[in-house]
């Protein structure tokens, strides 16, 4: 198989298969979650909690606890920086928008490439720092399981290979681009079956958290 054959395969059938697994997997995931159901709360409520639920989706992006904020500064800042950088790299790079356009039928304005490039670099550096933090911080070291590292690698690889492809580093461009797309395929395939699902479920979790507190009249 030549580099071009490889690139054509991952960009065509490879990406399509990965996308189908992603969509079906996420559908299954949500089915698994919601089929469990939740008992109706029979206590005399102070409010429906619906409003607090939506409020918490937003407010939980920050912190209400001064002590925790002070002691988890790194996690906070690194978390924000890497997520924003990754968002820029995925959704605001012109070639990526072209791909979304073929899937969705519409596009949106891109950021200038050097800015996306910078965001990618910052994201990668932050991810490396996050990894270092994970293996050195006693709590994170204790909590971490194999999947945490797999998920880290699945997130890091597309950024690295994308950066390499853009700068034509080390290997033949077609190979690197092919590997980049392959890494994205891997991310998509693993997504529904790992904690990467938090990207979707966290909003619903926050909603439940705020809603259950709101029912009791606790404002967050």
């Amino acid at each position: 198989m030549t580099a071009v054959d490889f690139l054509l395969w991952v960009r065509g059938p490879g990406l399509t298969i990965a996308s189908i697994i992603f969509v079906l997997g996420m559908t299954l995931k949500f089915f698994e979650i919601f089929m469990l159901g939740r008992k109706k709360n029979l206590a005399e409520l102070r409010g429906s909690g619906v409003k607090e639920g939506f409020k918490t989706i937003v407010t939980r992006s920050g912190h209400v606890d001064t002590y925790s904020t002070r002691h988890t500064k790194f996690t906070h800042i690194a978390g924000w920086v890497f997520h924003i950088g990754m968002f820029i790299a995925i959704f605001l790079l012109a070639p990526h928008i072209e791909i979304f356009k073929t899937f969705l039928g519409f596009g949106w304005p891109a950021l200038p490439t050097p800015i996306v490039d910078l965001a990618t670099v910052i994201s990668m550096i932050t991810l490396l720092a996050i990894l270092f933090h994970r293996i050195t911080n006693p709590v994170l070291k204790y909590l971490s399981v194999g999947q945490d590292y797999v998920v880290w690698a699945l997130t890091f690889l597309p950024l690295l290979t994308g950066y390499m492809a853009y700068h034509h580093l080390f290997f033949r461009y077609e190979w690197v681009l092919g590997v980049h797309i392959l890494s994205v395929c891997l991310l998509l395939v693993f997504f529904p079956f790992t904690k990467l699902t938090h990207a979707f479920t966290l909003f619903i979790s926050r909603w439940y958290n705020g809603m259950m507190a709101g029912e009791k009249g606790v404002q967050q």
Binding site: K29, R38, T75, V139, L140, D148, V151, K195
Partner: peptide
């Protein structure tokens, strides 16, 4: 139940809950 499944699906092992817990701090 559903919230439990959501919560486990959302946890990224970030460790922030430790600093909120007096038994940990």
């Amino acid at each position: 139940d559903t919230p439990i499944a959501l919560f486990f699906s959302s946890c990224t092992h970030c460790g922030m809950c430790a600093t909120a817990c007096l038994f940990y701090t």
